[in-house]
Structure formats: C-alpha cells, structure tokens
C-alpha cells in the first residue's frame, strides 16, 4: 500500500526538535555500548571525560574481554575456565550455552586437524548430550560433517560456516550475553535496540505516510562513515 499522505520536512523537523533528549542521555547510551561491548579503556576514559559512572566494574569488562578474546583465537578451554572462575552458575544454568561451547571446542579440534581428539571428544562428551535433545543432535551431526567435507569448495555453506570467524563471534556473543545476564545487566546494547526500533518504526510508518527518513539527516555523515 503506497502512502497517500505526506509529512513535510518543516513539520518533521519541528517534531524532531521537540523530542526530549539531552547530551547526557546520549552519553549514557554510549557508555552502555562501551561497557557491554567490552571497550574497557574507552569506558574508563569516557567516564572521566563525560563525568559518568559506569554501571559495572571495569574488572568485569576486562574479564568478558578476555573470554571473548580466548574464543576468538580458538582457545575454548581457556574461555570455559574463565567463565567458571567468574561464576560457575553461568554454565550450570545454561545447558544450551555449554553445549555451544563444547561444539565450538569440537570445531577447533577439527580446524586444527586433531581428528582423533575430535572423535574422542565428540563420542565421550557430546554424543550423550545429543540424546538430550534433537536440537543438540542436529548440531552435533552438522559439526561432524566437517570431517567428511574437509573444507573444500564443495562443502555446503551451512557446514563450512562453522569454520568461519563469524561462528567464533557468535559463540563469543552468546557467552557475553550470558555473563551480562548473570550480572543482572542488560544483555543487548541499547544502541542496537535503538537502531532496531528505528528499522521497525520507519518501515511500519512508511506504509502509512510519506515522511522524511533518518537517512535524509545523515547527509554529511558519510564524511565520517566513509574513510
């Protein structure tokens, strides 16, 4: 349905101006991002420069950073140890998360060509859990398929992606969210929520009326966005 009505720029500008938001508010959004995404030193600087107190201990930011880094370099064992040092409850209460960490470990074995260890680990640690739920079993099978395809070009995308850096990031993100949740901290970056809401709102409103979209206000941003 094409929108029949239009909100003019001047009217929209006026409404934008009416929106209640201050620099302090935006600063807190920034701080939330820095903390959750693990930018420890930037968060420290920002609390100084903007006069904000972060909602969490810097130490915990660092801990999460180390865990993420361990996963990103493929050291799953180190990540698991660190998570348990932080709070053993996290993995105890998140069987799915623990399974995904084990899966990541299996992936890393395969990546390194440690086939014997991979098989042993799969059979002893993971197969029993695969029986717990069909979802686990399917994931296990998908991972084991890596052994067959040997990461050649013929490997189906759904399987090859397990070896991609994105898979590591995905697992790291999951762990990060679980830790944040255990601290009673919001797990999604507010800034991301804001952008999702923007996507939701603009597309829905676009069906009803014609209005100036946010991209019209981003002119000039490319100077920053496009290096």
């Amino acid at each position: 349905m094409a929108p029949e009505h239009k909100i003019r720029k001047a009217e929209w500008d006026r409404r934008l101006h009416e929106v209640q938001i201050s620099k302090q508010d935006l600063n807190r959004l920034i701080m939330d991002y820095l903390v959750i995404e693990g930018y420890k030193s930037a968060a420290e600087e920002f609390s100084q420069e903007a006069g904000l107190t972060p909602s969490v201990e810097y130490k915990s930011i660092e801990d999460r950073m180390h865990i993420r880094e361990a996963l990103q370099r493929g050291d799953v064992e180190d990540a698991i140890t660190r998570v348990n040092e932080l709070d053993p409850e996290i993995l105890d209460t998140n069987p799915k998360l623990y399974f995904h960490l084990q899966q990541q470990k299996l992936i890393e074995y395969i990546r390194q060509g440690r086939i014997t260890e991979a098989l042993q680990f799969a059979q002893e640690e993971m197969a029993p859990r695969g029986e717990e739920s069909p979802e686990y079993l399917e994931e296990l099978e998908r991972t084991m398929a890596l052994l067959v395809f040997d990461s050649g070009p013929s490997t189906p995308a759904g399987i090859a992606e397990l070896l991609s850096p994105a898979q590591r990031l995905k697992t790291a993100g999951e762990v990060n969210a679980a830790i944040l949740e255990s601290f009673g901290q919001g797990k999604e970056v507010k800034l991301v929520g804001l952008l999702k809401l923007l996507c939701w709102g603009e597309s829905l409103l676009g069906e009803k009326v014609e209005f100036p979209h946010v991209r019209e206000y981003m002119a000039g941003l490319e100077k920053v966005m496009e290096y």
């Binding site: 409404r15 934008l16 929106v19 938001i21 935006l26 923007l198 206000y217 002119a219 000039g220 941003l221």
Partner: peptide, 20 residues
C-alpha cells in the same frame, strides 16, 4: 554535520514512534 548522527537517530526514531 552540526548534530551528531546518533542524535538524529534518536530523534528520528522517537518521531516515528509518536507518529505511528
């Protein structure tokens, strides 16, 4: 830009929600 992009993002989102 005289206004940071982030601020436009917030303002535009808010205005869209109210209009919705």
């Amino acid at each position: 830009p005289a206004v940071p992009a982030l601020e436009w993002v917030y303002r535009c989102t808010a205005a869209s929600i109210v209009e919705l």
